[in-house]
């Protein structure tokens, strides 16, 4: 029985990866996120999901941009440069889902507890609900949509998750897959225990952990 690990709390995973603290330093810490929000002058609402941006949703937005001032950024998402207007307090999950139309990244808690929003930032699994979009300029972002080959060929982890019937309701699946992809890229030959630890920041309420880990192990050697 352990508490829910945060993404930064998987030491075994890093040891296995042999990357040490260099990789860990790339990770977004909760403290950095909160500092960023304070710097932007916006407090986190107790209501959880609050989104001020309009882009992509409303064809007839009012002329005055209520809710904050957006700033144009260039983001590197799934190998493409995407230009997007971003609010100072906007999280990466919201930018990805509402402005870039990449809805495969899910919001389960919006508070860094469940892992449904896991994406890769420079190859490192990251809770995109807890990272400010402004902080990822110049970094390489990979979402679930970026795994599939242009010929429609699935990433080996995706295929293995089908073969082992990983998903049940499927809501946590993209996050589980992103964690698994990151693991296998840094540690191509993990033990089952290492896989469990690597995916332990992704909650699955259906409880399909056994099938997911079977999927990770089935992907070993295919990546």
């Amino acid at each position: 029985m352990s508490d829910i690990p945060t993404k930064g709390a998987s030491p075994q995973y890093f040891d296995a990866a042999g990357e040490g603290s260099g990789l860990a330093n790339k990770r977004a810490s909760r403290r950095q996120f909160i500092k960023g929000v304070i710097a932007s002058g916006t407090a986190i609402s107790t209501a959880g999901l609050v989104f001020g941006g309009l882009g992509g949703c409303s064809a007839d937005s009012p002329p005055v941009n209520v809710g904050g001032v957006e700033r144009l950024l260039s983001l590197n998402v799934n190998g493409q440069i995407r230009r997007v207007d971003v609010l100072p307090q906007e999280t990466l999950a919201m930018t990805i889902r509402y402005k870039l139309g990449l809805t495969g990244t899910k919001l389960g808690c919006d508070r860094g507890e469940c892992g449904a929003c896991t994406i890769l930032v420079d190859g490192v699994p990251t809770y995109s609900c807890s990272m400010l979009t402004q902080s990822v300029r110049g970094r390489s972002i990979t979402t679930i949509e970026g795994l599939e080959g242009q010929d429609g060929r699935l990433h080996p982890v995706q295929q293995a998750f089908i073969d082992e019937l990983g998903p049940q309701c499927g809501f946590c699946t993209p996050g589980q897959i992103m964690s698994a992809v990151a693991l296998l890229e840094t540690n191509p030959n993990p033990t089952r225990e290492q896989a469990r630890v690597a995916l332990s920041g992704n909650l699955c309420r259906c409880g399909a952990y056994d099938n997911y880990i079977n999927g990770v192990m089935a992907a070993v050697g295919r990546v």
């Binding site: 029985m1 352990s2 508490d3 829910i4 690990p5 808690c109 508070r111 507890e113 469940c114 469990r196 630890v197 995916l199 332990s200 920041g201 992704n202 909650l203 699955c204 309420r205 409880g207 952990y209 997911y212 880990i213």
Partner: peptide, 12 residues
């Protein structure tokens, strides 16, 4: 919050 009435994780 989830942490206050915690569902099992993969390590449980």
């Amino acid at each position: 919050r989830l942490i206050q009435t915690r569902p099992p994780s993969g390590l449980d």
